[in-house]
């Protein structure tokens, strides 16, 4: 087929750079090996998986991650929707708001994580809200808020595009029919932009799942809350336990897949190419 000639290079490269490491991860996860000493790999079967699945701290990390994902997504959607509605109406300000809305997303996540951590541990938020020593958990919450701050703009852009796709006559017609403001929102605007909301939810959820910078900069010995990504990182690149880390990576990938498999049908994410 003619089309495949155009498509093949990209698909091949994509498969090589994704499927190859995933396959390697699966293979590594069945061994006990370390990053530094490549020589002493030992096949251990599914031992790594039983270790992880029976580990309390792993499941706590997963629970914390899912909680972060849920909170971050809901906050981003609510704020993003409010901002999108406001931005849509104030077309005069578009030259400025267009730049402003994406600026937080351009700031490096690591920088955002560091300054948000500092804000609650030693910075302005301490004085403003009378915070005492917030500890690693508080700092983690702060960096998560920072992630919400970074992601709200892009969420607003997605929702704004969805909002602009709702024909104005749909709304005027509902007004003419005597729909109240509430009915217009729940029966006209939200359903009509449902595809945009669904996509924003899925994309933001999977993005929140892979947050790594915040947990990295707020981690302290004895921290009670850790995230799944952080545990993967810690195992692979701090303890150099490649095999165990690979097993965790596989579980993390499965987790992302499960999240997507849950969100896509529930929200009826559709996109025709």
């Amino acid at each position: 087929m003619r089309g495949w000639r155009w498509l093949a290079p990209a698909v091949l490269v994509l498969l090589v750079v994704t499927v190859w490491p995933i396959g390697r991860a699966v293979w590594l996860s069945l061994t006990r090996s370390t990053l530094t000493g490549a020589g002493d790999q030992r096949f251990v079967g599914i031992d790594n998986y039983t270790d992880i699945l029976s580990s309390r701290s792993w499941w706590l990390a997963v629970a914390a991650t899912l909680a972060i994902v849920a909170v971050a997504v809901v906050l981003q959607l609510v704020l993003g929707l409010a901002f999108a509605v406001a931005l849509r109406r104030l077309t005069v300000a578009w030259p400025v708001t267009r730049v402003l809305v994406l600026l937080p997303f351009g700031l490096l996540a690591i920088v955002s994580a560091v300054v948000w951590r500092d804000a609650v541990t030693s910075g302005f938020a301490v004085d403003w809200f009378g915070l005492d020593d917030v500890g690693p958990t508080g700092a983690l919450v702060a960096t998560t808020v920072g992630e919400v701050w970074r992601g709200t703009g892009i969420t607003a852009v997605i929702l704004l595009a969805g909002l602009l796709r709702v024909p104005t006559t749909l709304i005027t017609s509902a007004i003419a029919d005597g729909a109240t403001a509430r009915q217009r929102l729940t029966r006209v605007v939200l359903p009509a932009m449902a595809p945009a909301i669904a996509v924003a939810t899925t994309y933001r959820a999977l993005d929140a799942l892979r947050i790594l910078e915040g947990p990295l900069v707020t981690d302290a010995p004895g921290a009670s809350v850790r995230t799944a990504s952080f545990v993967v990182w810690d195992t692979t690149f701090s303890s150099f336990e490649t095999g165990l880390g690979a097993a965790m990576s596989v579980v993390l990938l499965l987790l992302a897949g499960l999240l997507a498999a849950f969100l896509v049908p529930v929200l009826r994410v559709r996109r025709v190419v």
Partner: peptide
């Protein structure tokens, strides 16, 4: 173009886009 398995390819692209890249860092390093 009319490509067979178009949706599959597109799904692969989106999946790769949203994948936790961190999970691949370890195997790549290895």
């Amino acid at each position: 173009l009319q490509v067979r398995a178009r949706r599959l390819v597109y799904g692969l692209v989106v999946a790769a886009l949203l994948m936790p890249v961190l999970a691949l860092a370890g195997p790549f390093a290895d």
